[in-house]
Simulated scan of single mutants.
Amino acid sequence: MSSTGKIAIIGVGNMGEAVLAGLLKAGHAPADVLAGVRRPERATALAETYGVAAVDPAEAAERAEVLVLGVKPYQVVDLLGGLPLRAGQLVVSLAAGLTTAAIEAALPAGIGVVRVMPNTPSLVGEGMSVIAGGATASAEQVTLTESLMAAVGAVATVPESQLDAAAAISGSGPAYVFYVAEALVEAGVHLGLPRAVATQLVTQTLVGSSLMLRETGEHPAVLRENVTSPGGTTAAALRVLENAGLRGTLLDATRANRDRSREIARGHM
């Protein structure tokens, strides 16, 4: 399959729009990207903002080689049943918890399925997308999906059996980071800092720390130790976090996330 064929984003919410914007920024021509939407006002807004054709999902599916599904997991199967699909197309699902097997069962023969778990930093081009190809997806189709998602950040390809675990780390990971950021801002306020100053300190500290992780390639433990002087203030704070069981709490949280994803896959919405 050529990477120059038409790509339809069906379900252009936050994540779908992030993919659309990323594809255009990466050099895809607006004429090669379709937005599949039902509401006329949304179609008008997307056409004006991005210069793409915004059409009914059925028309988008008919015209495209690649369909990126940005709708909710419980909407995917019903949506696919109403689209004019054909052999040779590729369906890329962004739906959490919905297995490739469940999607393949709703499709005609000869259509490849690749499952992707992106995250919200895709909105600023710094996403982490985890990809798994289904039984019907060719190696070329998986590679094509990697190329598409690279437009909005980094990409990792794993066996589908690992996708729920990966999604528990990166898919929901921004929520954990924002939760910690919120708590640190409140801590700064309690310590006497103006809220605006506390927010600036926390935001830039998270940005800088993340860049150090990525750019240095060092293990997080090494970077942590570089900040922690024996008997110092950081060591005192880390002791409190350790005594509070932060590591175990994060393990429990990510396990609960993975288990909920498996429940969704079994149809317990």
Rank of each mutant, 00 (worst) to 15 (best):
K6R: 13
K6Q: 07
K6C: 05
G11A: 09
G11E: 04
G13F: 02
A18H: 04
A18S: 14
L20R: 01
H28G: 05
A31R: 14
A31E: 15
V33W: 03
A35F: 06
A35E: 03
G36M: 04
G36I: 03
V37Q: 13
P40A: 08
E41A: 14
E41W: 06
E48D: 15
T49H: 11
T49R: 14
G51R: 08
V55S: 02
V55F: 10
P57W: 06
A58S: 09
A61N: 00
A64H: 10
E65I: 02
V66E: 10
L67S: 05
G70R: 01
K72L: 14
P73Y: 01
Y74I: 08
Y74L: 12
V77E: 14
G81Y: 05
G81F: 05
G82Y: 04
P84T: 01
R86D: 01
G88Q: 06
G88I: 00
Q89C: 11
Q89H: 10
Q89A: 11
Q89G: 14
L94I: 01
G97R: 02
A105G: 00
A106C: 04
L107K: 00
V114W: 08
V116W: 00
S122A: 15
S122H: 03
L123Y: 05
E126A: 15
S129F: 02
V130C: 11
V130Y: 04
A132H: 00
S138Y: 01
V142Y: 04
T143Y: 06
T143D: 15
T145S: 00
S147Y: 13
L148M: 04
L148C: 00
M149N: 02
A150I: 00
V152R: 00
V155S: 02
T157L: 08
P159I: 05
S172D: 00
G173R: 01
V177Q: 12
Y179I: 02
Y179R: 14
A183K: 14
V185M: 07
V189I: 09
H190W: 11
G192F: 04
L193N: 04
L193H: 05
P194F: 05
R195M: 04
T199V: 08
Q200Y: 11
T203V: 07
Q204K: 09
Q204C: 08
Q204A: 12
Q204M: 12
L206A: 13
G208C: 06
L211V: 14
L213R: 10
R214P: 13
G217L: 13
E225P: 03
N226L: 12
S229V: 09
S229Q: 09
P230L: 08
G231F: 02
G232C: 06
G232Q: 09
T233Q: 12
A235H: 10
L238C: 13
L238I: 07
R239Y: 12
L241M: 15
L246Y: 06
L246N: 07
L246I: 14
L251Q: 12
L251W: 09
D252M: 07
D252S: 12
A253D: 09
A253Q: 02
N257R: 00
R258D: 07
R260G: 08
R262V: 13
R262A: 14
